[in-house]
């Protein structure tokens, strides 16, 4: 009797070991799929694009001759877009977050609706924002296919992300700080503007930069508002424009191999820009964020 039960448990043990091993292999494979492809992607892009990177690539306008084509209008377009995005999203996003966190009475139906609405907006595909831009800004308002239309649509696209990040930052400020300020006779706005907001700024900045980095890489909405023009001059806010993701898309669509390499070079520029933004966000988080 004892020998059979010992045998049984030994079999169970080996079975367990095999299952454990299989499961660990599955977990390793999971990680590998993501990171291997990420690695392959970066290596491939660098192999194809690094040879194209040069000062003239950064400063030349695009051209139908691959040897002369550069990305200056696209880089400038992306930089202008970033500036407009900061100016537009930060006040709107932080204002909404302050309203929802500090002012809104959560029991009122319209405030609950506001929250559900923002949640749902975050799930709308970016191409649908592009349709909104095409219908209202480009055709409806008659703005035309201009940089401002692109910036406005990207603003609406990332607003939910900025709002959520800003709300989390405001929520992380302990209530004792608010109560302390109220006890000293501060008004609601004095509490918000002099105590809560300064304490929440590092968190808000981190979230806003990350959201901005996402917006800068968006392609679909910009395609819809018509950035796919051949721009050989510097973009202006109320004129035709292009941006890095669009320029990349355009070069990918060309059949010639040389333009694929141009696309890879532009991808390196875009990824470098995103990396700098992300690093800046992480630096702010580590440098200024307080734990209460």
């Amino acid at each position: 009797m004892t020998s059979t039960s010992a045998l049984g448990s030994r079999r169970a043990l080996t079975q367990d070991r095999v299952i454990n091993w299989l499961f660990l292999s599955f977990l390793a494979l999971s990680l590998l799929v993501g990171f291997l492809l990420l690695g392959a992607l970066l290596v491939d892009v660098f192999r194809k694009g690094v040879g194209e990177l040069s000062w003239s690539f950064l400063t030349n306008p695009p051209s139908s001759l691959p040897s002369r084509a550069g990305a200056r209008p696209a880089i400038l377009g992306t930089i202008y877009m970033m500036i407009l995005l900061v100016v537009l999203t930060v006040p709107l996003g932080v204002g909404t977050a302050i309203y929802l966190e500090e002012y809104a009475n959560k029991n009122r139906w319209y405030n609950r609706w506001l929250e559900i609405n923002i949640q749902n907006l975050a799930g709308v595909p970016s191409i649908v924002y592009g349709i909104l831009g095409l219908a209202f800004l480009v055709r409806g308002l008659g703005l035309g296919r201009v940089l401002l239309a692109g910036a406005l649509i990207l603003t609406l696209l990332v607003l939910p992300t900025v709002i959520v990040a800003a709300r989390e930052a405001l929520r992380a400020v302990p209530d004792s700080i608010r109560q302390g300020a109220f006890a000293l006779g501060a008004s609601q706005w004095q509490v918000v503007s002099r105590q809560v907001l300064p304490a929440a700024i590092p968190g808000i900045a981190t979230g806003a930069i990350l959201a901005l980095a996402r917006a800068i890489g968006e392609t679909a909405p910009l395609l819809m508002v018509g950035a796919l023009a051949f721009i050989a001059f510097n973009p202006t806010i109320l004129g035709d424009f292009t941006a890095l993701p669009i320029q990349i898309f355009q070069w990918i669509s060309r059949p010639q191999e040389e333009f694929r390499h141009k696309a890879a070079a532009a991808i390196i520029v875009l990824l470098a820009l995103l990396l700098v933004m992300n690093a800046f966000a992480v630096w702010i988080r580590n440098r200024y964020e307080r734990r209460w």
Binding site: L31, G34, F35, L37, L38, A40, L41, D44, V45, K48, L210, A213, R214, I216, G217, E218, T219, A220, P245, I248, F249, I252, R260, A263, A264, I267, L270, L271, L274, N278
Partner: peptide, 24 residues
């Protein structure tokens, strides 16, 4: 691993499109 995943999440879709067409 967590920051590496965040990098993966932050790559623009146009880059993945390039990768799908030109490499994968």
């Amino acid at each position: 691993l967590k920051p590496a995943l965040e990098i993966l999440a932050g790559i623009p879709t146009v880059v993945f499109g390039f990768f799908a067409l030109v490499f994968f």
